[in-house]
Amino acid sequence: MASVRPVKLDINGKEKTLSLEPRVTLLDALREHLHMTGTKKGCDQGQCGACTVHVDGQRVLACLTLAVQSEGSAITTIEGLAGPDGTPHPVQQAFIEEDAFQCGYCTPGQIMSAVACIREGRAGSDDEIREFMAGNLCRCGAYPNIVSAVRKAAEATA
């Protein structure tokens, strides 16, 4: 039966080699094996969006992705979003200014999702933002401010 094998992951432009069982999800590889805990686990079942990361530029759920599956892909997490000099991404900045979070636990997922949402051209109106950000639950109910932040960042980067 399968055991641990080397898995090479390209995370935020850095190559990381891990020894993992095939069943380890990308989310657990990040959080438990690489100690990169910016990506959150809210459900582990694809139902909340807290684990959203980018794989080859697309927003996906790390809890339903096997780490081995992402070998050969470029993975971006919240830790890799700021500029090389540490300048926050415009979406991060907008989230702070609009108070688009409270407890902050859904926030990395919201931000990764928002960056992709804008890139996909799905931030054209408040209703469009609401629908295309619906895969990121926020129990603190920061939704109205999330919409403002995404709109603001979309306008700034337009």
Binding site: T37, G38, T39, K40, T77, I78, E79, L81, A82, P88, Q92, F95, I96, E97, D99, F101, G104, Y105, T107, P108, I111
Partner: peptide, 17 residues
């Protein structure tokens, strides 16, 4: 704005686990 905001938006706020 929230003083803990920068940590939270960078994924650098450390939650219990």
């Amino acid at each position: 704005v929230r003083t803990d905001g920068p940590l939270k938006v960078q994924g650098a706020a450390t939650y219990a686990l």
